[in-house]
């Protein structure tokens, strides 16, 4: 019996450590299961509703109905402002939302020690509560007000990936990318990639299995690393492509990566210099990249010129 158990344990460990099997997941984005929260449906919000963390008059999270019938309808649960200004938002298959604090313009409502806390908005009760904390590699100082900057939920492995630059300084890159087991009521950091400052992050299901794409915070490069069957990091990271020289600024960092299909993704680039500049008109540019197959590199697809 003992031998049998040991054999089973070894088998499951080997399975988990193996790359996510090719073709076993729908190709493209691994965040396909996003579900509307039940509390919003119960309040009459339409399927065109969305969460926002960028409303200038509202601190925290806001639910906005984008339908023609209820355009402008908004809702904010009292708990949604408890963490101050927020940044990335991810939804899971149960209608729960994951958010993280990101200071905007100033740090008045964002407590420095809490910038590495990820919060979950319960899809049933709408209550927002701390869900997981990414341990900072170094105590943050006044030169870097940021912590978690990017989130992505993988519906296949029920993993939440978070990027954090907490504790990084100009001369030491101590950020990390972590995998959080998001299958339970509280999250647990189960794997990490250290020494990497990144912002945007996305899981891409490709022909060879899963890869985590992430945009670096110090350069305009987008890198990737393979994920195993559990969703843990595997092997060496590799450079995929760069935004350097593209767009109006030429040195954009990837704030968000959206997988459009199995062969196309859109990177939303912004200026990022580890400060709190926030021009009124969001200086964000969308960059589309395509590739023909998993063996060919991603190539930039320039937007068609505006014809007169």
């Amino acid at each position: 019996m003992l031998l049998l158990s040991l054999g089973y344990w070894l088998f499951t460990q080997a399975q988990a450590a193996a790359p996510a099997p090719a073709g076993s997941y729908p190709p493209g984005s691994a965040n396909y299961c996003r579900a509307m929260p039940a509390f919003a449906v119960n309040q009459g919000f339409s399927q065109q509703s969305f969460y926002s963390t960028s409303d200038r008059q509202t601190v925290g999270l806001l639910l906005i109905d984008g339908s023609e019938q209820r355009q402008g309808a908004t809702y904010q649960h009292p708990s949604w402002s408890m963490a101050g200004s927020l940044g990335p938002i991810q939804l899971d298959g149960g209608g729960n939302a994951y958010v993280a604090p990101v200071p905007t313009i100033n740090v008045l409502s964002n407590i420095p020690e809490q910038q590495n806390t990820i919060y979950r908005v319960d899809g049933t009760t709408a209550e927002m509560a701390a869900y997981a904390t990414v341990p900072a590699a170094q105590i943050p100082d006044a030169t870097n007000p940021y912590g978690v900057l990017g989130l992505n939920y993988d519906c296949d492995t029920r993993s939440l990936y978070a990027t954090s630059v907490a504790g990084s300084t100009r001369l030491a890159e101590v950020g990390q990318i972590v995998r959080i087991d998001a299958s339970g009521a509280t999250g647990r950091v189960v794997d990490q990639l250290s020494g990497v400052d990144a912002i945007g992050v996305a899981v891409w299901n490709g022909p060879e299995g899963k890869r985590l794409l992430y945009g670096k915070a110090r350069t305009s490069e987008i890198w990737s690393i393979a994920l195993d069957g559990r969703g843990d990091f595997q092997g060496e990271a590799q450079l995929e492509f760069t935004l350097a020289g593209l767009g109006p600024r030429g040195d954009d960092k990837a704030r968000r990566i959206v997988i459009d299909s199995a062969t196309q993704l859109t990177v939303y680039g912004i200026e990022f210099s580890y400060n709190l500049i926030a021009p009124s008109e969001k200086q964000q540019t969308a960059y589309t990249f395509v590739r023909e197959s998993s063996s060919t590199p991603w190539t930039f697809e320039p937007p068609p010129p505006e014809e007169q």
């Binding site: 008059q57 313009i105 100033n106 006044a142 870097n144 100009r170 210099s273 580890y274 400060n275 500049i277």
Partner: peptide
């Protein structure tokens, strides 16, 4: 009412400045 900004000024990179 209540609309405005509280800006810190300072170094251009690795800072808490909103205006650099």
């Amino acid at each position: 009412d209540g609309f405005g900004y509280s800006d810190a000024v300072g170094c251009p990179v690795f800072s808490q400045a909103a205006v650099v």
